[in-house]
Design a protein around this nucleic acid. Structure first.
Length: 559
DNA sequence: GCCGTTTTCGGCCCGACTGTTTTCAGTCG
């Protein structure tokens, strides 16, 4: 069992204990153990069982719970408390903006036991009757439920990627048994590398179309049902899959048709005619267009650009020379500064690491006060001597405070090589306030990069509203780079605004926001959306070489 | 339930903000 699973189990246990009003200090210790387990730099399953209670925050009681989890995969105490809690009440824990205390009131005093009932009660204006609830809370719960319902059956790209790849391999092997010359390809949102996937589409082109169709329901990894020209299935987790089986001669046209969005496909085919086509390249060339990568087929401006032969050369993961905006054990990271640096140097073959631990206001994350900033800089200087020519840049993820100011005085700010400014608190501002707040941070001469501009968490939280054009224009005017936060939950700046930023000559940066060494790999997801946005390597800050980015930081810093 | 001793039990506690209150509780990163 992974630490993450153990941590999640402990979190659920602590939340349920709160719902059942158990001893608050017991609850706290379980919640604390969740937090600690989540931040461990080693796997609990590799640790001798009698040493678990030596870990800080884990005593005899919690150690025995973890042993039970590791050995049986279950926790009796959790099962018992789950039995005493309606399923719908447990589901409410996933609604952003309400915690166990409010759910307790909803359940016990209003008698509401499911999210559906809760939504109904909001519409009936019944929530305001309860103590501690008012009109605003009711409205907020209502919109949080709507956001959650809209996420049903939808998944992050990163959530389905592993499953999709495995399925594709299994399907390829299975198909080859019937027709070893069959053609297979992903289509739809997955091939376009959309950040959210509603449905996984795969196209099979074969000369044995009847044999494939007859046997597909026996393809064991899925329970497929024949539908209109396709086979469909929904996994237990609610993920929809659609397989299209087509004549091999029609494969490339079908693959193309099922990949791009409707408008893109219609516009290209209007230019290309009806084929037949030997491959996708031929479709575009017959349409008088240069080849358009699948990620771009969204009917933005890609057809006009292809017509004028002005499509950007899309950035690739291999173009990245370094990684900016990452955390270490100095704040809330799991691995030490040296471990993070060594991983970039040895495993990822990068030239530099930008370390951006949290600033002092982020107390919950061990944010660095002025003395610790100084201490970290000393360690960086030492490591830079040791690791040369690899370079660690002194960065900080400075909170943007409610009034838009940064978290340190200019005297401290000027000691950094670069500053990522981002919002972590007071996320519920309206558009005017949130925009003004960001504008002030962008205009600060020490701001190098605007971090996750909207604070959104895909499928979970909308993020505060901002006036994108004003923000991007201000970044252009103040030479501030905008982050593409590569965490698959964020992917913020949204790719739909990359083009506008690039038109305004704003640089973008694919930042993993890594809190452990494995986190660097999220840059893969950042690259996928950056490609959708039309980013080329020369417009990406962390595709700059060490020399180039050093010069860039030096030119940006006020004297 | 954990910790740190005062080796047997008492103390554990982020701060800002918001919405609900009329002085504070819940939630968040």
């Amino acid at each position: 069992m992974e630490n993450k699973t153990i941590a999640r189990t402990l979190r659920l246990l602590s939340q349920l204990m709160e719902l059942h009003e158990e001893n608050p200090f017991k609850i706290k210790s379980v919640a604390n153990a969740y937090f600690k387990v989540d931040k461990l730099p080693f796997a609990l399953r590799d640790k001798p069982l009698d040493e678990l209670d030596k870990i800080e925050g884990i005593g005899k009681g919690l150690a025995s719970k973890i042993v039970e989890l590791l050995q049986t995969g279950e926790l009796q105490e959790l099962n018992e408390i789950l039995d005493r809690t309606p399923e719908g009440v447990v589901e409410m824990l996933a609604i952003k903006g309400i915690g166990p205390k409010k759910i307790f009131i909803i359940w016990r005093t209003l008698g509401i036991e499911s999210i559906g009932e809760l939504y109904y009660a909001c519409n009936e204006n019944r929530l305001i009757e309860a103590k501690g609830f008012g009109l605003k809370t009711q409205e907020e719960i209502k919109s949080a439920i709507e956001f959650k319902l809209a996420a049903n059956g939808r998944f992050l790209y990163a959530q389905v990627e592993g499953f999709a790849k495995t399925l594709f391999t299994q399907l390829s092997v299975w198909t080859a048994n019937i027709d070893d010359l069959a053609l297979l390809g992903f289509a739809g949102q997955y091939r376009r590398a959309c950040e959210i996937i509603d449905e996984l589409e795969i196209v099979i082109g074969t000369e044995q179309i009847d044999a494939i169709k007859q046997n597909l329901p026996a393809f064991e990894p899925l329970s497929l049902i024949e539908a209109e020209n396709s086979f469909i299935c929904t996994t237990e987790a609610g993920f929809r899959i659609k397989l299209h089986v087509v004549e091999k001669s029609a494969f490339y046209l079908q693959w193309f048709t099922l990949t791009g969005n409707t408008e893109h496909v219609e516009k290209v085919l209007a230019l290309a005619g009806n084929g037949p086509f030997a491959n996708e390249e031929e479709i575009y060339s017959k349409a008088g267009l240069t080849f358009i990568e699948p990620e771009l087929r969204e009917d933005f401006d890609e057809i006009e650009l292809a017509k004028a032969n002005k499509l950007p050369t899309l950035i690739q993961y291999e173009d990245l020379k370094g990684s900016l905006h990452n955390h270490s054990t100095w704040s809330d990271g799991v691995h030490t500064l040296e471990q993070m640096a060594m991983y970039c140097k040895e495993n990822l073959n990068l030239q530099y690491l930008g370390i951006c631990d949290h600033s002092k206001t982020a107390v919950y994350a061990k944010g660095l006060n002025e003395q610790r900033v100084f201490g970290q800089h000393q360690e960086i200087d030492e490591l830079n001597k040791k690791l040369a020519p690899f370079k660690i840049f002194k960065g900080i993820e400075s909170d943007i405070l409610s009034d838009g100011s940064l978290d340190y005085s200019d005297d401290i700010l000027k000691t950094f090589d670069f500053v990522v400014a981002s919002v972590h608190s007071n996320l519920r501002m309206d558009e005017a306030k949130a925009t003004a707040r960001l504008l002030k941070a962008i205009e600060n001469p020490y701001t190098t990069i605007l971090g996750h501009p909207t604070g959104r968490l895909l499928l979970s939280r909308a993020g505060y509203p901002i006036d994108y054009k004003k923000i991007i224009d201000a970044c252009a005017a103040n030479k501030v780079v905008i982050e593409i936060n590569a965490n698959p939950l964020r992917l913020d700046l949204d790719w739909r605004w990359h083009r506008y930023a690039l038109e305004k000559s704003v640089l973008l940066s694919v930042n993993p926001d890594a809190h452990r060494t494995e986190g660097f790999h999220d840059m893969h997801y950042g690259i996928l959306v950056a490609r959708k946005g039309g980013l080329s390597a020369d417009k990406c800050l962390n595709a700059f070489t060490l020399e180039e980015i050093t010069a860039y930081f030096n030119s940006k810093r006020p004297n």
